[in-house]
Amino acid sequence: MQGGTGDGPHYDVVVVGGGSAGLSGASTLGRARRSVLVVDSGEPRNAPATGVHTYLGLEGVAPADLLAAGRDEVRRYGGAVRHGTVVTAERHEHGGFRVVLADGGVVHGDRLLVTTGLTDVLPPVPGLRELWGRDVLHCPYCHGWEVRDQPIGVLSTGPLAVHQALLWRQWSADVTLFRHTGPAPSDEEEEQLAARGITVVEGEVAALGTTGGRLSAVRLADGSDVPCRALAVAARLDARAGFLAGLGLVPVGQEMAGHEIGGRIPSDPTGATSVPGVWVAGNVTTLTDQVIAAAAAGVRAGAAVNADLVAEETRRAVAARREAVSVFSAPSEREVCDRVLGDRRHGV
């Protein structure tokens, strides 16, 4: 940490968001000998899940344990972690950013790395939120193995539901597509579903039936129950980035198979946004990133931020050197007078 800037401490980089992307970026920057602060609200998207999957070498690790280890690593390399929620970020006239927290705290950074993730906007079906991340699922690669060979339902709310059902069929032969509020399958899609043995159930879903706090059935509006152990839901994915609006950064739509699935903060492959000095990484900019991909994006963005700081420091060093050389090589007043008198003596 560098000296304060009036109303709060100053860092090379303020990382907003303490998930896998933010902590990986902060660790990368700490190893680059940067002063780093991670501001973390403590509300990770995957908190309800029992384990993180497809993370090489850490398969099944509890989300809380992974983040705790990440915070320890950041601190090991001199970084700081602060609990809080960022409400606004504004640019200083002289460069850098002023970041205001919900508790009134203020911090300053030469660069911002935003890794706040996304919010899953679930369909308004009673019981979905309570079982989200355990029996109500979104990603077969994250959770498919854990519910393999069990009755799996797919809640249709949009045009990608058939694709979703066909995908989940890889993990179980017992898959049911609940039409709910989604569009009717096309003739081609009906043939695909039939060929894969996927049952289509008409009617809206009214609620979820549970046994011992776990999903046991999907209850239709007509009162009938369909046995179900897991329910796949395509939630809308919206970046958590409201505080960036003051810097001119607002979400744009991200599409999958020609259909919008949510809103993301656009960036280049390194995570750099259209606002100089602001980078993003993880689900805030790539909605479909899994945990390991978000961590990799954090490393990539952290390296890009450090390179940008190195470039700026080099420019300043060159300018300072040129000024010093200019002052050192400039003739003194006595030397100028001697030269003038010498010229006169020689008739110049």
Results as ranks from 00 to 15, higher is better:
4 G>M: 00
10 H>Q: 05
11 Y>V: 00
17 G>D: 10
35 S>W: 08
40 D>K: 01
45 R>P: 05
47 A>F: 09
50 T>D: 14
51 G>F: 13
58 L>K: 08
59 E>I: 02
61 V>A: 13
64 A>R: 10
67 L>Q: 04
76 R>C: 03
77 Y>M: 04
78 G>I: 03
83 H>E: 14
86 V>G: 01
87 V>C: 07
87 V>G: 12
93 E>Q: 09
95 G>Y: 03
97 F>H: 05
97 F>P: 01
99 V>G: 11
103 D>Q: 07
106 V>T: 15
108 H>V: 12
112 L>N: 13
114 V>H: 00
116 T>P: 07
117 G>N: 06
130 E>R: 11
131 L>I: 05
132 W>N: 13
132 W>L: 14
134 R>C: 07
135 D>V: 08
138 H>F: 10
141 Y>F: 15
141 Y>R: 05
144 G>I: 10
148 R>M: 09
150 Q>V: 12
151 P>C: 00
156 S>K: 07
156 S>Y: 03
158 G>V: 00
163 H>M: 05
166 L>I: 11
166 L>A: 06
169 R>I: 10
170 Q>I: 01
171 W>I: 07
172 S>F: 10
174 D>C: 02
180 H>S: 14
181 T>L: 04
188 E>G: 07
192 Q>C: 05
196 R>E: 15
205 V>I: 11
208 L>I: 11
209 G>N: 01
213 G>N: 12
219 R>S: 11
221 A>G: 04
230 A>K: 08
233 V>S: 05
235 A>N: 06
241 A>G: 15
248 G>K: 12
251 P>H: 11
252 V>E: 15
259 H>N: 10
260 E>L: 12
261 I>Y: 07
269 P>E: 10
280 V>M: 01
283 N>W: 08
285 T>F: 00
286 T>P: 01
290 Q>K: 02
298 G>M: 09
303 A>D: 03
305 V>H: 06
307 A>V: 10
310 V>M: 03
318 V>D: 08
321 R>E: 12
323 E>Q: 14
327 V>T: 13
329 S>R: 13
331 P>A: 14
335 E>V: 13
340 V>P: 09
343 D>I: 02
